[in-house]
Computed example of a mutant assay.
Amino acid sequence: MILQGKHYRSGLPIQISCSEGIIDSISETQTSLEKDLIIGPGFTDIQINGYGGIDYNEIQSDPIKLAEISRLLYQEGVTTHFPTLITNDPAQISRLILQIVYLRKSDELSRMSIEGLHIEGPFISPIDGPRGAHPKEFVSAPDWSLVQKWQLESKGLIKMITLSPEWENANSFIEKCVEHGILVSIGHTNATHQQILDAVSAGARLSTHLGNGMHPIIARHPNYLWSQLAQDELGASIIADGFHLPAEVIEVFQKVKKDKLILVSDSVSLAGMAAGDYDLHIGGEVSLTPEGKLHLKSNPSILAGSASNIRRGVSFMIKNKLSSLSEAWEMASVRPQKLLNPGHILFEEGAIADLILCQMDENGELKVVKTIKHGQEVFSA
Results as ranks from 00 to 15, higher is better:
T29E: 09
G121L: 12
D107P: 10
G284P: 00
E175D: 08
H281D: 03
Y8G: 15
V286K: 13
A328F: 00
V264D: 06
S201W: 00
S32Y: 06
N341S: 14
T31K: 12
Q359S: 13
S333G: 07
I23M: 00
V268H: 04
S267L: 09
K155H: 02
L225I: 13
P290R: 07
L294R: 12
A141K: 06
S323N: 04
F123N: 08
D55N: 06
E349W: 00
V368M: 10
N363A: 13
V200N: 01
R312L: 13
P142K: 00
P336M: 07
S298R: 11
A230W: 08
I48V: 15
S172N: 09
K370R: 13
Q30V: 14
G350L: 14
E76A: 15
Q376A: 11
G375K: 01
V101A: 13
D259P: 02
L357E: 07
V252H: 02
N320L: 04
L210I: 14
G211C: 08
N88W: 08
M331D: 11
A141R: 01
R335C: 10
K321Q: 15
L280D: 03
K319E: 15
P13Q: 09
S298A: 15
V368I: 15
R335E: 11
I14A: 11
L197N: 09
I174C: 12
Y278I: 10
F316A: 13
V178M: 09
I352W: 02
I46G: 13
I282G: 02
L296E: 03
H215T: 05
V378M: 13
L288S: 08
S323L: 11
S326D: 15
I93Y: 07
L72M: 13
A353V: 07
K105M: 13
E168G: 02
L152Y: 05
S94A: 09
I23F: 00
I23V: 02
S324H: 05
I124L: 10
S287M: 10
S306W: 03
M214E: 00
S17M: 11
G305W: 04
S269H: 09
S265T: 04
H118C: 13
S323C: 10
K260I: 11
I23P: 01
L340Y: 04
G40E: 06
D266F: 09
V368L: 10
G5N: 03
V78I: 06
A351N: 06
K260D: 12
L206Q: 12
I310V: 12
I86H: 05
L366K: 00
D24Y: 00
L3Q: 00
K136E: 14
G5T: 01
I196V: 14
R9H: 04
I54M: 07
A247Y: 01
Q337R: 08
I282Y: 11
N320Y: 00
S287Y: 03
M160L: 15
K159N: 06
H188I: 12
P165K: 03
L263V: 07
K35R: 10
I26Q: 02
E365V: 11
Q228M: 14
